[in-house]
Simulated assay, not measured.
Amino acid sequence: MKLSAVLFLSAVSTVLAGQTLVFPTQTSTSYVEMTPLKPLNLSAFTLCMRVATELSGEREIILFAYRTQHYDELNVWRELDGRLSFYLSGHCVLFKTPELGPMETHLCFTWDSSSGAAAVFVDGRKSLTKIYRKGHVIRSGGKVILGQDPDAYLGNFEAKQSFVGEIGDVNMWDTVLSDSTIRDMFNGKKVERGNVFDWESTQLRTNGDVVVVNREL
């Protein structure tokens, strides 16, 4: 690896507050690996991010991927028909929501194993609740990436499923946050940082054509 690339990766691995990731083009090589603060052995979660893309209505888009050696443990998608979904080691739960577009959207996905309750929040507004994978547990020991859908452990990427656009403020908790907390987060208020992923401190490793952009807070 060239020295310049090493320095770039080192810079990306520092504080990310006020920064976003831009994936400028469709590729099968560009992605970002995220290092969790704790193992992803989860019986509940809240996953939030800010997303903008101009691919709306054209094709499916991977928004978040967590895969172990044998399973897609948690994958989040914008489906071909515009619906949002997430998959927990099998079939998905789907939500009909306002479509993503070039203007930034704040997304949160929530799920609780004890009840199976699953929901999505778009710019602070909650969808209806659906019941999905009651009693399931997300297993640890895998890799989390942004930008690609791994059909094998950190590999077998397809350009037509890659993320193109801007993504940032990716935070994850091992609990379901309250509706009011998610609304506060959308409105830019300070909330307790994610204990699985905290965008202000999570280490990232970029691969391929990914640009880190500073933004005003």
Rank of each mutant, 00 (worst) to 15 (best):
D184S: 04
S89L: 06
V51T: 07
F121G: 04
M103K: 14
G208E: 04
K2C: 08
E166F: 02
Q26W: 02
N41K: 09
L128D: 11
M185P: 00
L154F: 04
D174R: 06
L21P: 03
R183V: 05
K96R: 09
N75I: 15
V213A: 13
V176I: 09
G90L: 09
L16R: 14
D81Q: 10
W77Y: 14
A159M: 06
D112L: 15
P39H: 11
S113D: 04
V176P: 02
P150W: 04
P39V: 10
L88I: 15
V22D: 08
V22Q: 12
T181C: 02
V6I: 12
K38I: 06
D123T: 01
Q26R: 11
T25S: 14
D123A: 03
P36T: 00
G135K: 13
S13D: 01
R193G: 11
L63R: 00
A119Q: 05
T175A: 12
A152I: 04
G168E: 07
Q203W: 03
A119T: 02
N195Q: 11
F163E: 00
G141Q: 04
R78M: 14
V120R: 06
G18C: 12
R183E: 10
Q148S: 04
G101P: 03
S201Q: 13
K96E: 05
V137I: 15
E54H: 14
T105L: 05
F86D: 01
V191S: 01
Q26G: 07
L63Y: 06
A11S: 12
V164F: 02
Q19Y: 14
W199Q: 09
S13R: 01
L217F: 14
T129F: 01
S115I: 09
H106D: 00
V22R: 15
V51F: 08
G147V: 04
